[in-house]
Design a protein around this nucleic acid. Structure first.
Length: 482
RNA sequence: GGCGACAUAGCCAAGUGGUAAGGCAGAGGACUGCAAAUCCUCCACUCCCCGGUUCAAAUCCGGGUGUCGCCUCCA
């Protein structure tokens, strides 16, 4: 598999440190609010990467942190007259509700800053001991001049950045780009004991300390949003490598932004949409599909019309699954004929194309194109079969199995424990009562149709449409779906 | 001021040297009482512009133009 590595600015072959195992760390949210769509992109992208690596047979150790101690949390808690720790805890819970809805699998560990003060203080202490940090009035700063590789990820030298500095420089810092490792507590703020007095960690040190605890001095993949390259990830490298003397992460992956009217969606611009709000209007699989329909490094512009178009595209895949299930249930042909073998061959080819798409820097947009190609192959086969011989259930089972493999990686549709795709509709969800009622309504309408009472038949169909149920008359019977 | 990314049909989007995937929307046909779904066919002589390299460029190089991002909390 090839991965675009921000460190060298090109794709390279991904070779894990240990054969068959991959360690991944992805920067998670600061929990002071519900997540917005921009926050959701890395979740879905790296979840998909993780699923694909698993599919390829790797044992993946996946760590995603929560920043639950931070200025923004403290400010928010003050506004709401709540305890900062409890507020952060609440938004961790809310985070999981959104992530679960988007079918993002839980990480192996979700470490929180508030539970790793010991490791963080120890790391700062080591940086002090080794001459990479200095203390001023209870604050501890990292001394970037002590780390020769500073700037290697973001591709800028300390001199470049000084030239355009847009912030007032704290005069207590030796170099303007020095950054805080430990902040002395102000009155009323949560604080933890340290050799430099009570305080709390700076933003960057947590990821260095927690990734080290769970993945060791070096690991394979570090992911996050593009805007974390500088300063966050640059600083993580400096801290970690200064302490360990080892290369930190080998492959750095950064997702592009979600934009609104071509502008970055961000909290400071106020143009963000909460995942929760979007899920009120669109099903979660549509949102996930939308997020994966563009390559992860490209910007992705959001609006309702684009999401709606994604939903219509997804419907095509769902229809294919419904058609397969109907056809398979109506046939018991055993032996494979020529058409069956042609489809079987095409399916195998699609599997390979799908894999090579994802092998090329997780090209989910291409992979989704391959899914549609497979859907076209299957629909054509079903159409031909409907006019001649019945389908061969064994080939249909293979086809459905292929879509389930695709789904196990893209994570679009809900499944049962064995990975079988479960769609809304008569299969499940509403329970037996709705199914029975639908059977009754359809029977009454069919009687009307037999009498050629089209007015009644159409009235029933239109009425159901108004409550969100689609009726489709087919030669073999009536199909309904939500 | 420094650094970087992107520009492909009405919309979304893949494609890094060999003659433009896929989806949405749209047109025609098949099927249907009608609709929907599905199938078949059509829908970019051309990839922001101008030069150059090459037998061959959307793809490489140079120069423009435009949009966006990072340098400050931000996925």
């Amino acid at each position: 598999m090839q991965i675009y590595n921000t460190l060298i600015r090109r794709k390279e072959k991904m070779e894990p440190r240990q054969a068959g195992k991959i360690s991944m760390y992805v920067c998670g949210p600061t929990t002071y609010n519900f997540i917005h769509l921009g926050n959701a992109r890395p979740l879905v992208v790296f979840d998909t990467l993780r699923r694909y690596l698993r599919y390829k047979g790797y044992a993946v150790n996946y760590i995603q942190n929560f920043t639950d101690i931070d200025d923004k949390i403290i400010n928010r808690a003050r506004e709401e007259r709540e305890d900062p720790i409890l507020l952060a805890r609440k938004y961790v819970e809310e985070y999981f509700r959104d992530a679960d809805a988007l079918n993002v699998l839980r990480a192996d560990v979700h470490p929180r800053v508030s539970e790793h003060l010991t490791e963080i203080v120890e790391m700062v202490r080591l940086l002090m001991e080794r001459g990479h940090a200095y203390e001023v009035d209870g604050d501890v700063y990292f001394d970037i001049s002590s780390f020769s590789g500073y700037g290697k990820l973001s591709g800028r030298s300390p001199e470049d950045m000084q030239a355009g500095a847009r912030v007032e420089v704290d005069p207590r810092k030796r170099h303007p780009m020095d950054f805080v490792l430990w902040k002395a507590a102000k009155t009323g703020e949560p604080a933890w004991e340290s050799p430099w007095g009570p305080g709390r960690p700076g933003w960057h040190i947590e990821c260095s300390a927690m990734s080290r605890k769970y993945l060791g001095d070096n690991f394979d993949i570090h992911g996050g949003g593009y805007d974390l390259i500088f300063p966050h990830h640059e600083n993580e490298i400096a801290q970690s490598e200064a302490v360990t003397g080892n290369t930190f992460a080998r492959y750095w992956m950064h997702n592009g932004f979600i934009t609104v009217n071509q502008e970055k969606m961000s909290k400071s611009l106020g143009n963000f949409f909460l995942v929760r709000e979007i899920l009120d209007k669109f099903p979660p699989e549509t949102v996930r599909f939308f997020l994966l329909s563009t390559h992860y490094r490209s910007p992705l512009d959001f609006d309702d019309e684009k999401l709606a178009a994604s939903g219509r595209g997804l419907e095509r895949i769902k229809n294919c699954i419904r058609l397969m299930d109907e056809a398979a249930g109506s046939s018991a042909r055993q032996d494979m004929n020529g058409e069956d073998k042609v489809l079987a061959g095409l399916l195998e080819r699609r599997r390979q194309e799908f894999e090579s798409a994802l092998d090329d820097d997780l090209n989910t947009a291409l992979a989704i194109g391959i899914v549609f190609d497979a859907v076209g192959d299957i629909n054509s086969y079903l159409h031909k079969a409907s006019q001649g011989e019945a389908v061969c259930p064994a080939v249909i089972s293979k086809a459905r199995g292929l879509l389930e493999v695709f789904n196990s990686i893209l994570g679009l549709f809900g499944t049962d424990a064995s990975g079988k795709i479960i769609l809304d509709g008569q299969d499940q969800g509403e329970g037996k009562l709705v199914g029975d009622l639908m059977d009754l309504i359809i029977r009454i309408r069919q009687e009307a149709r037999l009498r050629k009472d089209w007015a009644t038949a159409d009235s029933i169909r239109n009425g159901l449409k108004d409550v969100g149920i689609i009726l489709e008359d087919t030669p073999s019977g009536v199909r309904w779906k939500k």
